[in-house]
Design a protein around this nucleic acid. Structure first.
Lengths: 190, 190
DNA sequence: CAAATTATTGAGTGATCATTCAAAAAGACT
DNA sequence: AGTCTTTTTGAATGATCACTCAATAATTTG
């Protein structure tokens, strides 16, 4: 079968899904073979090993997230107007029954010092998100204001990614976000 | 050897340490046998199984954390004065090389729907922390203010527990906390 | 001081883990 | 068409997984 290959996009999507739900360690090759439809040998030829498939899954997820964030920001006049809607969608997400936080956040916390390379990879992707917010804030803020606001936004995003895992109280989260991020352009209906 | 037993406190401390660093799935019974000094049979007699030891480790950690928090709050006139120091110690913690976030937060994110019992257990412990803050805020705030402030504090704590895993910039975190929690009694030296 | 009770030991269990590889299959190239 | 190159296959590998249990040791009880 020289040349013809499986659909890498679909394989990464299902692998990402498995790793996201179960975590890196708890996802067995058996599960990955089941979910991707690939045979063990094919996975090892294409990705080297389980860690290789995990790394590509992380990249796939991060790339999608950043693209999605950029597209969302482009729809608004300012990041201050975009963020309330972004946070609302995060809260909605967290109320769904099959919610499993953010793949990057979960991976960041699962990986140990023995997996430095992978962990740094995740850190880098998370920093990219913060950089995107930072750059956006620079339009209407001084550099130090923009930096503090970007970090504060990240803290709140991380907070929701954890908080949403054990609580379903939408109003409580919205009130807390309005309290912690009063400088955002919250609208009445939020 | 009827009656005489191993030091449960020490066993739980080392088990907690292993689970905290490596996570539930990645901590093998072999590691636990090594770290606790107990033989497999003793662990199974005392804790039933790996999950039992994990649950008791979670309780051990949560109990310590809550005791510690209560003791800290007692040293201050108000929770608003205590929190800046508490947050500063969280930030200091997160800058240490062997930092591995908060055991409860990590566990919360690792556990899946298949481990509902364990996950609910962790959620309950986290809610206890929030309740403690809520009760403290009630002294100087209306109920709805106190609730929003307690949730906001939890979001920031969770945020640091994740953020601290990939960044070492103390100043940046402090600026973000001052921005997100301006109603706390921050002192000049913070 | 026996007898009964309970804790400890650690080799051993089958299951599952990540990974390999020789054989077969499917284009590509000449 | 025939050869070459690359992909797919899936059974097999040894390692490690959580867990068990019969034998042993320590302490309490009568």
């Amino acid at each position: 079968m020289a040349r013809i290959q499986f659909d890498k996009e679909k394989v990464l999507e299902s692998a990402t899904n498995a790793f996201w739900r179960l975590g890196y360690t708890a996802t067995s090759m058996h599960t990955l073979v089941e979910q991707t439809g690939l045979k063990p040998g094919s996975i090892y030829l294409a990705f080297g090993n389980k860690e290789g498939l995990f790394r590509e899954s992380l990249d796939y997820y991060a790339h999608q997230s950043l693209d999605n964030l950029e597209a969302t920001l482009a729809q608004y006049n300012s990041v201050e107007e975009a963020l309330p809607d972004i946070f609302m969608s995060f809260i909605e997400e967290s109320c769904q029954s099959e919610y499993c936080s953010c793949f990057l956040v979960k991976s960041q916390l699962e990986l140990t010092d023995q997996q430095t390379e992978l962990r740094d990879h995740v850190s880098q992707q998370l920093r990219r998100v913060e950089s995107l917010y930072f750059e956006s804030f620079l339009k209407n803020n001084t550099e130090s204001e923009a930096r503090a606001k970007a970090t504060s936004v990240m803290l709140h995003i991380f907070g929701i990614r954890v908080y949403g895992y054990h609580s379903n109280s939408k109003e409580q989260l919205i009130d807390a976000l309005r309290l912690g991020l009063p400088w955002l352009s919250w609208k009445a209906e939020h």
